[in-house]
Amino acid sequence: MRPLDLDYMLGLLPVLLKYVPLTLAMASVAMVLALALASLMAIVRVLRVPGLDQLTKVFISFFRGTPLLVQLFLFYYGLPQIFSFLTAIDGVTAAVMGLTLHFAAYMAESIRAAIIGVDRSQWEASLSVGMTTAQMMRRIILPQAARIAAPTLVNYFVDIIKSTSLAFTLGVTELMGAAQKEAAGSFLYFEAFIMVAIIYWVIVELLTMVQRQLEVRLGKAHAR
């Protein structure tokens, strides 16, 4: 066993931390887009919108049924060969797009379950006063579904953050890509990768704390 090069590890920390904003930005953009897309798909599924419902089912099935890495390669390396206008897309954009579609498929199912979990009486009360379906969804059903789905959705955000590390396979120098480059230069693979692991771990732990706060808050909401 060789001793750890602690000085190297400490020196690496500020280098790697510089990439945290990119990782968080990619994850946040993917999360916001995925949430929007997932909500739309969930509504389409719940309301059984003809045509769109079937399309959504296939979409969800595909993006849940294939590995994220395969999807990313398909987007970045594959699609531009078929659609030349996609050649201009850089790795970051391709990764965010891939993460968005992949996680939207998972989140759509959670949101759908949450919508169905809202008591039937809430739908009937909304309709009985004369609301449109859109008003009912926006003002009564989705806010209640959001409370039900929130903890699960935070879990998906954690997954998205960790999955941004796959962007390095598309040539993006994000947190994982930076660690890979450093390791390749110094040959201190263990030091480089344990540092990057610790950084992800800390981020996720911080987020988990936020999640617990959120759950406490949501538990109290609407109980006053």
Binding site: Q122, A125, V129, G130, Q144, R147
Partner: peptide, 23 residues
Amino acid sequence: ASEQRAVRRRTSFVFQNYALFAN
């Protein structure tokens, strides 16, 4: 749908289980 809403607007409903908007 809009005819149904027109009727609903003119008929208010009080539910056995109250069915208040929980949020």
